[in-house]
């Protein structure tokens, strides 16, 4: 928890700044609307955290989200009765994609950056091959409830967040961190490294599926729904002080990082820095935040901070 403090402080400052600009934010409805908006990214960040802390990357989550939403729209096609089977199918797709990512990375020993980059191409190619280039069909009202109704979205988020925190407190969480910290030492002390990493990818796939269900309800069907989400999720995780390359950081901090990123977007909007310059501010802040984090412990982690992180993959 102590390591999550800096990001929580930053988050508090940002939330206060939003509240000053927009008092509605202090009311439960206003605040919960913000939480609902942040929920997909927070869930994705939790999934990405598992992968990153084990020393890998998952670049496929953005296109996985798109695939899930497009698949849901085509299969449901406005038919209420199809909602629940399709929801189950989406979860299965997420788990499967994660499993493939994990197996290719661990058994075939392809660096995860490449595995998930390839998966990104395959997923987005396959889904639009299937639908003929553009999303078709429509989501059912029941499906959209999860992302649209604040209560449901917040509940889903809470369940996922608690589950993520519990996973990291369990033995699995420790082995995952150990794997990311020093693969060899972990293997020698009996951790099944490949299995732990594969499970991390499966969790990331699951998180992407849940995020897609929320986003589909919230934002509707489009071919761009997941665009860039992989980078946003990785950014959020890193903002939370989790080190690329693995072995450092907590899942709470990663989720706080996602809230911070979302708060940053909200704030930039409120102060009228909307549109393109938002990206510039975002870029500067990401670099500054990570630099500030890295400068604190330069001597404890000399190589990890630099280009060595993807060496683990």
């Amino acid at each position: 928890m102590r390591r999550a403090l800096p990001i929580l402080a930053v988050l508090a400052v940002l939330l206060a700044a939003i509240a000053i600009a927009n008092p509605f934010f202090l009311e439960p409805a206003g605040f919960l609307a913000f939480v609902r908006r942040a929920a997909p990214l927070v869930i994705l960040a939790a999934g990405q955290y598992f992968v990153i802390v084990s020393g890998e990357f998952d670049l496929s989550v953005g296109s996985l989200v798109t695939v899930e939403v497009v698949v849901a729209a085509r299969l449901i096609d406005g038919n209420e009765g199809a909602t629940w089977p399709v929801l189950a199918l989406l979860i299965v797709i997420g788990l499967l994609v994660g499993l493939v990512n994990g197996v290719v990375t661990t058994i075939l020993r392809v660096p995860s950056f490449i595995t998930t980059l390839g998966m990104m191409l395959v997923l987005s190619g396959a889904v639009f091959l299937w639908t003929g280039g553009a999303p078709r069909g429509a989501l059912s009202e029941t499906f959209r409830v999860f992302g649209r109704e604040t209560g449901w979205a917040v509940l889903v988020l809470a369940v996922m967040a608690v589950a993520a925190a519990l996973i990291m407190r369990a033995d699995f969480g420790r082995t995952l961190v150990a794997t990311g910290d020093n693969e060899r030492a972990a293997a020698l002390s009996g951790v099944r490294v490949a299995r732990a990493r594969t499970l991390a990818f499966v969790l990331s796939g699951l998180a992407a599926a849940v995020a897609a269900i929320l986003l589909g309800g919230f934002a509707g069907v489009s071919a761009q729904v997941g665009q860039g989400l992989e980078f946003q999720a990785i950014t959020a995780v890193v903002l939370g002080g989790v080190v690329l390359g693995g072995g450092r950081g907590t899942v709470i901090a990663a989720m706080a990082g996602a809230f911070t990123l979302e708060a940053l977007f909200t704030l930039l909007n409120l102060y009228g820095i909307s549109g393109a310059l938002e990206f510039t501010v975002q870029g500067v802040i990401i670099i500054a935040a990570v630099a500030a984090g890295a400068l604190r412990l330069p001597f404890l982690t000399p190589q990890r901070v630099k280009g060595d992180a993807h060496a683990a993959s």
Binding site: F279, V281, I287, H310
Partner: peptide
């Protein structure tokens, strides 16, 4: 600044994109 290359260049990419 000891920022991981992934984040550093992603951040610079965002800065250029914004401009």
């Amino acid at each position: 600044l000891r920022v991981h290359a992934f984040i550093a260049t992603l951040g610079v990419a965002l800065i250029i994109k914004g401009v």
